[in-house]
């Protein structure tokens, strides 16, 4: 899983039918110390994670397919957990 922070979202009118209506968040990948790395991953979100919160993102399509109605949806990253806090990591 990838630890990331939500920094925004995108909307789209023209997209693959399986992604229509799916909430797409812009998530910035965090390093061990929790600092932003500048790398942006677009992740689908069904948990309703708010902007600025830290989340766990899966990078495996099969996991993302659990929530997707259309099995042909080209989706890899999805938010599967909202992080409360990270312990024991030197910051």
């Amino acid at each position: 899983m990838i630890l990331a922070k939500i920094v925004g979202n995108v909307t789209s009118a023209v997209c693959h039918p399986g992604i229509e209506g799916v909430r797409l968040l812009l998530c910035e990948v965090l390093d061990d110390a929790g600092n932003a790395t500048g790398k942006i991953i677009g992740a689908a979100d069904w948990l309703g994670a708010g902007e600025g919160s830290k989340v766990l993102i899966t990078a495996d399509g099969d996991a993302a397919q659990l929530h997707v109605e259309d099995p042909n949806t080209p989706l890899r990253n999805a938010v599967f957990g909202i992080v409360d806090h990270v312990e024991g990591v030197k910051s």
Partner: peptide
């Protein structure tokens, strides 16, 4: 998969 319209 997506043509982006708006970025927030």
């Amino acid at each position: 998969a997506v043509i982006v319209d708006q970025i927030q």
